[in-house]
Design a protein around this nucleic acid. Structure first.
Length: 878
RNA sequence: GGACGUUUAGCUCAGUUGGUUAGAGCGUUCGAUUCACAUUCGAAAGGUCGCAGGUUCGAAUCCUGCAACGUCCACCA
């Protein structure tokens, strides 16, 4: 042990953290294969780190991810499980490419992809992604993440590419992946398709025009996007709408803004007769809803907007090449000039925009690859317990549903079940091909009209599909591909870790990722990917707003860690945060936890100094305070163990903090100074709190562990478990605690000068007399008074203190404000009498006494008796 | 439009199957202070648990309705 007297008074996190992390890593304890024997025998426990996107640096959300997962991993590691936490990063396809493209534009490139070409452009992306990976890894280490770096994965490395291709091939064979010409979400800025989930909506005001195609057309229709009307092939009305029933089935050939259309009047239930004119212009090429109507009625698809979001040649020379916005204005003018416009009104509209880049998304027809979620296929293996056998016909949607419905996967908090089911029930086929360069290339080859699924070229003359896969297609297999699947040897070596124990992630990617992982895992290996999904809320700023660069309210973990220490940042992300509920974070909060870190440091320092003190080394029998603190330790230990098992991290941390700060530091350590002879107990208390705090604040606890000269790393020490053998004594102690608080209050209220002249005492039963007598020494110290007299028959000239649960008296010393005390006594008397009245009424109620639990009745009766006793004393003194 | 969430002390939030007189932290006010820690300690003030009904011996907790705020989904073309 180093010289304790030289330990700094304030804990300096930044001077010890890096060395501690390096020592942990060097010890091999991040790697399950190098854990101690007891872990080797333990149950495998695995968490997959949600791989951060290689798009730059980590933010507070990531810091929260890492901290929460590290808490679980460290807790289970200490409990003896064979823990594996696999770290990794995500190539994030579109997100990364977009990011690099933006950087290149800043560098001066006008159109980076065109200017550089595929190969050089990709080189830049890969370079950026690699640098980003290094930053992320360094940050993860700073957070204290105890993940196994020897098993770091990348969603775009060779092994994961093999997994992606394997799944693609399986789905291709099963007919679940299909190429089709369908209406898709198209991002004109990045020239690629997007999945439904990558499209967000933005509220804008738009002009809703009501008009006729031409003078002879019988029905007026409404649209905010008249430019798409060049592609109309039908007008749909509700089948019950009498206004139009005669027209149904007829075909018209109006001339719309110079283009001849062929419009069939059809009846469809999807039309709302109350909206607008009750007639809907059907544009099969540029609306997914219309495309569905069109397929029901066998209507042709006419594309009029191209991939640059410009009007196509088909719309006539006046419109060709115009942007949609330009065309829209021109059409309104034309309609108005030709007296075809019935009305124009401003309406609120949700404009579809790309999640990345923010471009306005066009719906247009395109030949793309889709995963068919509603198509039945024959299962390759038994899936989801006994629910489905090999060979059963199911759909992917059913697999996703049953995994959660059957409770094999538990979502935390539970209410997300509903959101999940709702999403699945409305799920459409998943468009997986992207015209992005950075990503897993689609393993399909074409020759003439033939298509073959294969990773290697099938031979001469075959050309590979240039498209890449949606990033979520690859991250969907993360839980098992990161464990080595489909490589037989690797997968066998890691088989026991799957399904993983828990997936901890932000509640915002439930659909993007969690659902896709369930799809991939149940399909490809016939197993749920994880048993629990812990959905964290988002980390918001002080005012509950999202942290964003433009608002300037971003808290950067890397700036905060040197300032407050990693442990403080970790605590601020764990305590006061509820799953599924967005939490607020401020620097003030982190500062408060820095103070706690320092408190823990000083508690440790004090105990260590005491251990060498002759007074504490002296042997002494157990006192009431000893029994109490050990009983509390056991209770708190049992309680927080239970809470951690139930994913109640915040509650666990708060309880442990209250115990450490209030019970241990403010009460027990103060008592220990007086009583002495506590070397053994102090030692085991320190040992206990260090172990229990370790998963929350690994650095300071490990540092103290080292300072105290303990064996090995705290990181792999055993999670404690105590037997509470002194519960009754703890109850007695609580009475004294109230007694002390009352005296403190009197001192505070009467002022020091007056208090110096006061003699305190108490009036109660013999039990209290004994208790106070036995513990007088420390009571005097904690109340900072020497004038406490033990007596159960209070002198006549004394008055009664009026708050708290104990009844204490004091003498009418000079300087005591008797008028104020008298008022207080009267006020309390009033309250007590009201309480007695209502409680008596309750207790005498026959139904209450027959139905209420015994414990409740007993407690209430006891309280009632105490109150009556107090009333008696107060009355005698008034 | 649909779904979900939130509403408890000035602020941030706990409150685990309904059960003693509803809690904590921060902030405020008053006080302490060489003795581990001023990144400390003690004390006080502060709440008709969003509103209105209902169920119950008993409701912050369960049910119904309403309001405000927030989030997600679908969008009416």
């Amino acid at each position: 042990m180093s010289d304790l007297r030289e330990l700094p008074k304030a804990y300096d996190a930044s001077s010890v953290e890096d060395a501690i992390y390096a020592a942990w890593e060097a010890s091999g304890a991040f790697n399950p294969d190098q854990l101690p024997d007891r872990n080797q025998k333990g149950e495998p426990y695995c968490i997959m780190m949600p791989p951060p996107n290689r798009t730059g640096t980590l933010h507070m959300g990531h810091a929260q991810r890492m901290t929460t997962q590290d808490l679980m991993i460290r807790f289970e590691r200490m409990r003896g499980k064979k823990t594996l936490w696999i770290p990794g990063t995500d190539h994030a396809a579109i997100a990364t490419q977009v990011k690099v493209e933006q950087l290149l534009i800043k560098e001066g490139y006008k159109d980076p992809r065109k200017d550089l070409g595929r190969e050089a452009f990709l080189e830049r992306v890969v370079d950026f992604a690699d640098k980003s990976r290094n930053t992320i890894v360094a940050q993860a280490r700073k957070m204290g993440s105890s993940c196994d770096w020897t098993r770091e994965r990348y969603t775009f490395d060779a092994e994961r590419n093999l997994a992606v291709n394997t799944i693609f091939e399986m789905m291709f064979e099963d007919g679940l992946i299909e190429r089709g010409f369908r209406v898709v979400n198209w991002d004109p800025q990045f020239q690629t398709t997007l999945s439904d989930d990558e499209v967000e909506s933005k509220d804008v005001t738009a002009r809703l025009l009501t008009f006729k195609y031409d003078k002879n057309f019988p029905i007026a229709i409404s649209s905010t996007r008249p430019e798409t009307k060049f592609g109309d092939t039908a007008v749909a009305v509700h089948p019950d709408d009498k206004r139009y029933s005669k027209l149904i089935g007829q075909t018209f050939e109006p001339e719309f803004c110079g283009k001849k259309l062929s419009i069939k009047i059809i009846a469809d239930e999807a039309v709302d007769p109350a909206f607008g004119t009750g007639a809907l212009g059907v544009t099969p090429a540029h609306s997914m809803i219309d495309a569905e109507i069109a397929s029901r009625h066998g209507l042709p698809t006419v594309q009029v907007i191209d991939q640059q979001a410009r009007m196509m040649a088909d719309c006539g020379p006046e419109f060709e090449g115009l942007t949609t916005v330009e065309a829209r204005a021109k059409i309104e003018q034309f309609l108005s000039d030709n007296d075809l416009l019935v009305s124009a009104e401003e309406v609120q509209q949700a404009l579809p925009v790309a999640q990345r880049g923010g471009a306005i998304v066009e719906q247009l027809p395109s030949k793309q690859w889709f995963v068919r979620v509603n198509k039945p296929f024959k299962l390759r293996q038994k899936t989801l317990g006994n629910k489905y056998k090999k060979g059963d016909e199911v759909t992917l949607k059913e697999l996703m549903l049953v995994a959660v419905e059957s409770n094999q996967i538990k979502l935390i908090p539970e209410r997300f079940d509903k959101i999940y089911f709702h999403w699945i029930n409305n799920l459409r086929d998943w468009c997986i091909s992207r015209q992005i360069w950075f990503g897993h290339q689609i393993p399909v080859w074409y020759k003439d009209d033939e298509a073959k699924c294969s990773v290697e070229s099938p031979g001469e003359g075959w050309e590979r599909d240039p498209d890449t896969l949606d990033t979520w297609f690859s991250s969907g297999s993360w839980t098992f591909s990161a464990l080595g699947w489909p490589d037989k040897k690797e997968w066998k070596a890691h088989r026991d870790y799957h399904p993983t124990a828990v997936l901890e992630t932000g509640r915002d990617i439930l659909f993007f990722w969690v659902a896709r992982m369930i799809l991939m895992s149940t399909y490809a290996i016939g197993e749920i990917p994880f048993k629990n999904v812990y959905l964290s809320g988002l980390v918001m700023d002080e005012q509950g707003r999202k942290m964003s660069k433009s608002l300037g309210n971003v808290l950067d973990p890397l700036e905060l860690i040197p300032k407050y220490g990693t442990d403080a940042v970790r605590l601020s992300l764990l305590l006061g945060m509820t799953p599924g509920q967005d939490g607020k974070l401020s620097e003030t909060k982190i500062e408060a936890f820095r103070n706690f870190t320092n408190k823990l440091w000083n508690i440790s320092r004090f105990i260590l100094l005491q251990l060498e003190d002759e007074k504490q080394k002296a042997s002494k029998t157990r006192t009431l305070a000893d029994d109490w603190i050990l009983s509390r330790l056991a209770d708190v230990n049992a309680s927080i163990t239970d809470k951690l098992e139930k994913f109640q991290f915040s509650a666990a941390g708060e309880e442990l903090r209250d115990f450490t700060w209030s019970d241990l530091a403010d009460w027990y350590l103060e008592i220990a100074k007086v009583e002495g002879g506590k070397a053994d107990i102090l030692k085991s208390l320190l040992n206990g709190i260090l172990r229990m705090w370790h998963p929350f604040m690994p650095f300071v606890t490990e540092h103290v562990w080292k300072v105290m000269g303990a064996e090995g790393h705290l990181m792999v020490a055993e999670w404690p478990e105590y037997v509470n053998d002194s519960m009754g004594r703890a109850v007695e102690f609580e009475k004294l605690r109230l007694f002390v608080t009352d005296i403190r209050r009197l001192r505070a209220e009467q002022g020091v000068e007056a208090a110096k002249k006061i003699s305190f005492g108490f009036v109660a039963d013999e039990e209290m007399e004994g208790l106070v007598g036995d513990n007088l020494e420390w009571i005097k110290r904690l109340t900072n008074t020497s004038a406490i007299e033990v007596m159960n028959d209070m002198p006549d000239n004394w008055v009664v203190a009026t708050s708290g649960a104990s009844t204490i008296g004091f003498d009418k010393a000079e300087g005591v404000d008797m008028e104020a005390e008298r008022e207080k006594m009267e006020k309390e008397l009033e309250q007590l009498e009201a309480y007695i009245k209502s409680t008596e009424a309750k207790l005498s109620n026959a139904e209450f006494s027959s139905k209420a639990p015994e414990q409740v009745v007993r407690n209430m009766s006891d309280k009632l008796e105490e109150a009556k006793e107090k009333v008696k004393v107060i009355k005698s003194r008034l």
